[in-house]
Design a protein around this nucleic acid. Structure first.
Lengths: 206, 206
DNA sequence: CCCAAAATTAACCAAACGGTTAAATTATAT
DNA sequence: ATATAATTTAACCGTTTGGTTAATTTTGGG
């Protein structure tokens, strides 16, 4: 007999993980309840403890997976072989796209990192994260050849991240600051890729 | 007889509010517990319900006070009579200062706004928030006179906010991205005011 | 000094929570 | 087919949580 359930093709463990991912990113560790996760996964609550021993373990699994998947992705763009200006444009385009598709993930990561900084540095963040050595060198060379004005490479990185991430994760706050409707806000975010690229490149031109 | 307690000069209601403010901003609504708040305020748990009827009411009181105090402050800087470029520098200086002194408040506001957007727009955000009409006009004039290159005023506002706020609220994440120690991160944030001002002004120069 | 109102507390309660257990069901290999 | 292991469930347990109650203490005005 077939089960009456809908998603037959993922394993129970996967279903649990996805439900947990959804609710943890939406409500945080304390806000998401085990029963809720079980309901969303369409299984009994005891199964959560069968596959993941405790709430903390389940939470850690989600956080670890998110970080290990997302973090290297963007550092790799910065470490790629593209010319500096193209690279910055590519970074903005792909980063804004991904964050708009998963708007809750970055805020979740930032929040939980602030609540338990030690855990992250000790256990969760992968030790083999790409360093930005190549990118830094590239910036210094661009400064030396006069392609761009003198800028501190580390600040450039953080500025690029800030301009991409913040308006999306702080979307309701931005709406209030600008005093615009939800539709206007959507339009505003649609303009962002172009505006951020322009802003970044103008900021570093010689 | 004097009470053995330390802060004699604030009312009980104030003490409760401050304890709640501290714990809510630190742990969020779900993460902060009523007993914890009572302990920190040095009073019996029932007093929380005596002064504020429920956890939600207490939470709302804190959120409302924070927003009503912080939000107009910065919009007013943008609406002040200063010349545009000085105004932007002043904005960056004061904003970065305030956020570094209360690093958890903006993340708290952003998080809770994302969790309950409706409540904020309906109940919490003051209806008389300053509009940025004067600032927008000022930017357009500066563009017309050639003081700055053509920029979309609303994007300029959000860019300024992003560059100031994000590195501070995402401090642990920034540390990981940059791969630097806690002390280096402090130094990095110390450099921020100068760097952001420079970055902003270079980005909009003609 | 007295008394009514306000402030504060200890004890308690029901619901929600994370977690466990033992039994039942399903899958797997022989 | 059958025995064994893996999976799933219903029922339960102790603790924590937000909230209440009734009694006690403190306060302030007449």
């Amino acid at each position: 007999m077939d089960k009456p359930n809908s998603e037959q093709f993922e394993s129970t463990e996967q279903r649990i993980f996805e439900a947990a991912h959804e609710l943890f990113t939406l409500k945080g560790m304390a806000g998401a309840k085990m029963q809720e996760i079980a309901d969303r996964a369409g299984i009994n609550k005891a199964l959560l403890h069968y596959y993941y021993r405790s709430k903390e373990k389940l939470f850690e699994a989600v956080v670890k997976a998110v970080i290990r998947k997302v973090m290297p992705k963007f550092l790799q763009i910065l470490e790629s072989e593209l010319p500096l200006l193209e690279k910055l444009e590519h970074f903005v385009d792909t980063y804004i796209d991904v964050i708009r598709q998963n708007p809750f993930v970055p805020l979740f990561v930032i929040s939980e990192m602030n609540k338990h900084p030690d855990r992250f540095f000790d256990e969760i963040v992968p030790k083999d994260l790409p360093r930005l050595d190549f990118f830094y060198k590239q910036v210094e060379e661009a400064v030396a050849t006069g392609l761009i004005r003198p800028v501190a490479p580390r600040h450039l990185v953080i500025n690029a991240f800030s301009l991409c991430v913040f308006p999306i994760i702080a979307r309701p706050m931005a709406r209030i600051i600008l005093g615009i409707s939800a539709e206007e806000m959507n339009q505003f975010l649609d303009e962002r890729k172009k505006e951020v690229k322009s802003f970044l490149l103008h900021a570093i031109r010689p």
